[in-house]
Amino acid sequence: MRKGVMRPGHIQIRVLDMDEALAHYRDLLGLIEVDRDDQGRVYLKGWTEVDKFSVVLRETDHAGMDFTGYKVLDESTLAALESELNAKGFATTEIAAGELLGCGRRVRFTAPTGHTFELFASKEQTGKWGIKERNPEAWPRGLKGMRPTRFDHCLLYGDDLEGNLTLFTEILGFDLAEQVLDPEGNKAALFLTCSSKAHDVAFVKHDEKDKFHHASFWLDTWQDVLRAADLISMTDTPIDIGPTRHGLTHGQTIYFFDPSGNRTEVFCGGDYHYPDHPTVTWDAEVLGKAIFYHDRELNERFLTVLT
């Protein structure tokens, strides 16, 4: 049952060198830089996103994800979810409005897999970049790089998938759109949605807590994915896999690495999910096909290289 969580709102990614990171996220990927704060963090977004920012880069001494945040319908929904989290044993921390520039108060908690999540209801709305709200043109001129439209989801690796499944479905109101089951019937991967998208967050079973696999950005067409591949080659950017199609969610995709070793995905297409849809199941025995639908063979790096 939906609980008022609308969509992925932001992700804060740790980078080792901000100038190199901006060459990746702003110039190659093509996110739009929208602000910087006095901590040195840089704020970016995809051009179709109406809120002020969706990606925050923070320079530090190790790579990975600091946290990811989901936007909820309104402040009363936020308060209700905060109470329910607390009642079900999830300690929450309030991050004051303005700690992220333009963002209202955030409710932060740790998932059973060790990842830090946030909920928030308010963020400054600066509108889609480069086009008007009234009589809008199809797209803005002046986009750079791969021209991603939005931050779409992230994939995280961690140990307690059953705990995360309970948290996301029973408290936060996500649906389990797809899953991978091992031969004993244990959950090896979860693809969860709070919308009609194939995934708004995904988890893969892994023996360490709090590992980051990738942040993903939406492109409109397969041709855009191929063009992204060309840009990856032109810039000699480390590639992981693709262009190809996933079996899981059936998205068309390519993966590459930022200069700090964090993985980035751009993708298009794929399945949709409504609350009455059954969960799609993939068996771990066909994991090669589930992950890389064309090669049908696992790439060890995709499974084990994490930040």
Binding site: L16, A63, P238, F257, S260, N262, R301, V305, L306, T307
Partner: peptide, 11 residues
């Protein structure tokens, strides 16, 4: 062994 090539994964 080749990992992320960016100093992040440790491989």
């Amino acid at each position: 062994r080749v990992g992320c090539r960016g100093g992040g994964c440790g491989v």
